[in-house]
Design a protein around this nucleic acid. Sequence first.
DNA 1: CAGACATCGTTGCGTTTGAAATCAGGCCGG
DNA 2: CCGGCCTGATTTCAAACGCAACGATGTCTG
Lengths: 155, 155
Amino acid sequence: MKLEAFFPYRIAVTAEAFSRQLVAVYGRTHGLTREEWRLLFLLEDAGKLDSLQLAQRTSLDKVQVSRAATRLEAKGLITRAVLGSDRRLRDYRITPAGEALFARVFAEVEARAKEILDAMPPHDREALTRGIAALDRAIAAVTDPETGHGTSAAD
Amino acid sequence: MKLEAFFPYRIAVTAEAFSRQLVAVYGRTHGLTREEWRLLFLLEDAGKLDSLQLAQRTSLDKVQVSRAATRLEAKGLITRAVLGSDRRLRDYRITPAGEALFARVFAEVEARAKEILDAMPPHDREALTRGIAALDRAIAAVTDPETGHGTSAAD
DNA sequence: CAGACATCGTTGCGTTTGAAATCAGGCCGG
DNA sequence: CCGGCCTGATTTCAAACGCAACGATGTCTG
C-alpha cells in the first residue's frame, strides 16, 4: 500500500499543513505557542475563567495550562489568582494588553484561514465541515460509547 | 468568538484525536514513533529508497528522517548505507524483521482506522475524503501557486 | 474532629523537538 | 588539481514536553 493513499495519513498531513499556516501567524509572527494562543482565545471570549471551566473547554492538560499560563502572565497578557471559594483552583483573567494583542492576532489568523478556505470550491468546503463533524462524532462513539465528548483541542 | 466554533480549531482537534487513536496502536503497543512508522510504511512499499526519493514522499524534514532512521536501524528494522553513486545520500532498505513488524502493526492500525471510519455514515465519510483532498489542494494553491505539492506527513 | 482519600496546580527530570551550526561529499570555474 | 560554493546528513544547544512526584487544599467518613 502506498503511504500517500492511506487515509489516516492524508488527513493528518493535511491538518498539520493547515495548522502550520496558522502557527506561522500567531507563533512565528507574534511569539505565541499553540497553548498560549488557545488560552488567550478562551479568555478573550469568556473574560475570566476558573480552572474547572477552562479544563472543560480545552484539550489542554493541567501541565500545559500551568506552563502556558505562567508564560502569558510573565508577558502581562493574563492574570492568575487563587480562587477564594476553592483555593486549589485558579482564576484566570485576560488583561487589556492581552485583549489588544489577541484582537490583532486573531484578525490575522482568521484572514489567513479564510484565504485558504476561500480557495476551496464552496461545495467542498461544506463537505469538509460536514466530514470533520462526523469524524469527531465517530471517534467519540467508538472510544466511549456514552460520554459523547470528542477529544478536543486545536487552533 | 467561541474557540470551539472556530473551524481551524475544530479540524486540528479532530485530526489530532483521530491520529491519537492510531498512535495508541503503533506507538503505545509497538513502540514506534510517528516518524518511524511513516518511514517503515514507505520502505515497506518501496523495498528500498535513497534519501532523495524519500524526501519527495514524506513531509518529514531531514533531521526527523535522520533520527528516526537511527532508531529503526538500532532496532534492526531497516538498513542504512551510503549510496555509492553519491556518497552524501543514503540507501535505506527494510529488513525482513522490519517487514514482519510492519505487517503486524499495519493490520492493527488499519483495523482501528476502519473501525472509526465505519462508524461514520457513508455519505459523511465521502464528504470527509472529498473535503480533505480539497483542503490539501487549497493549501498548495495558496502557499505556492505552482509547485502543487501539499505539505505532507501523517499516519 | 481526625484521619484517609481525592483533586488541583506546580515542579523536577529525562526525553523529544526544532533551528542553527557543523561535517562530509560533490560540482565547477580557473 | 585547487579553491569556493552547493547540497545533504548529522550534531548541538536550548526550548518544550510528558510523566511522575509533590505540596496544598477540600471532602468525606467514622
